[in-house]
């Protein structure tokens, strides 16, 4: 058996930093004095001691009028209302699901915050509570929106739109939440026919396009009608995924890994660029090589820079 094996010494590890044309800002580290308390208010990442505002995390300072915040380079997901998240069901409880969303407390999805077959305004009956596990069970992946934030900081989610809900077939990648760029839209269909959900919480979902968005959005009525017929049929989301789709998903996953290794912000533009640049490498598995990863990230950054210059 002969395969391609590449072994590098620890001292010759690839440096993944991509020279982006940005100047280094002023950094603050824990315990460092940011400013006097007199003129400013303390925000996240800061605390007050001896009439001084001090930083409690390592990162950059942001000032909004009189409010001083220090943002760490990476941290757990801090939810905001309206964010699109991807999460995994941990537990089915009375009238609600517990969802893992990379937040510091588990998120809650209430039974009243999901679309049930039979229309928006249906009363949730005891039978619905019994049948909760048929809608979502432990280990399922969902996409959802942050509806509100409880006083203890945990998130309340809702899936009351047809674009949210259970995710059937595809791949999930976890990245740092701070690498996801905030955009108007986090649901995308890439030119290669893959639908991508860039969750604000750093969970990225990729799946074949057909079942997820198009069919549902185009004929709402038809789907809700069919949901009525075979209510809670747990196999309705399954279909054969073609080989080309599988390869595209795998390539996309490797592109994301390359961008993350070089700490580049992820949005649909960078994803498409990286995906296109990655065709320099014919086989998907070649992208796992650290040099190839750096190359893809570098080419992507280069294309971004040329767009920025124009």
């Amino acid at each position: 058996m002969s395969g391609h094996v590449s072994i590098t010494l620890a001292s010759e590890r690839v440096n993944h930093s991509v020279a982006a044309n940005n100047e280094i800002p002023r950094f603050f580290t824990p315990g460092e004095v940011v400013c006097d308390l007199h003129d400013f208010m303390r925000g996240h990442g800061t605390y007050v001691e001896d009439d001084k505002i001090k930083s409690s995390v390592a990162g950059v300072m942001q000032r909004v009028n009189k409010l001083i915040c220090v943002h760490p380079l990476k941290s757990r997901y801090v939810g905001e209302i309206g964010d699109v998240v991807v999460g995994r069901v941990l537990e089915v409880q009375q009238k609600r699901w517990r969802i893992e969303t990379n937040s510091r407390l588990d998120s809650i999805l209430m039974l009243s915050a999901v679309n049930l077959p039979g229309g928006e305004l249906r009363r949730r009956s005891a039978e619905d509570e019994m049948a909760m596990r048929q809608i979502l069970e432990e280990g399922d992946l969902i996409s959802a929106e942050v509806q509100s934030i409880y006083s203890d900081g945990s998130l309340a989610l809702h899936t009351r739109s047809l674009k949210y809900g259970k995710l059937w077939q595809g791949v999930m990648v976890k990245v740092f939440p701070s690498l996801i760029a905030r955009r108007k839209n986090h649901f995308h269909i890439l030119p290669c026919g893959i639908s991508v959900i860039l969750g604000n919480n750093g969970f990225i979902w990729m799946g074949p396009q057909a079942q997820n968005l198009v069919s549902r959005e185009k004929d709402d009525n038809l789907v809700s009608a069919s949901e009525n017929e075979d209510n809670y049929d747990c196999y309705k989301g399954l279909q054969t995924v073609t080989r080309s789709n599988r390869e595209a998903i795998a390539r996309l996953k490797n592109c994301i890994a390359a961008l993350v290794a070089s700490k580049m912000m992820l949005d649909v533009t960078t994803l498409i660029f990286a995906y296109e640049e990655s065709f320099k490498y014919e086989e998907v598995k070649e992208l796992l090589d650290p040099e190839a990863m750096l190359d893809v990230a570098f080419l992507t950054q280069h294309r971004l820079n040329t767009i920025m210059d124009e």
């Binding site: 982006a20 280094i24 990162g59 990476k74 700490k263 533009t269």
Partner: peptide, 21 residues
């Protein structure tokens, strides 16, 4: 330690970009 943290920050810092298409 402080020096190491600052070096690490400088290495991993990405400017939140502003482009959209």
């Amino acid at each position: 330690l402080d020096k190491a943290v600052r070096e690490h920050l400088a290495e991993g810092w990405t400017k939140p970009d502003v482009i959209t298409i």
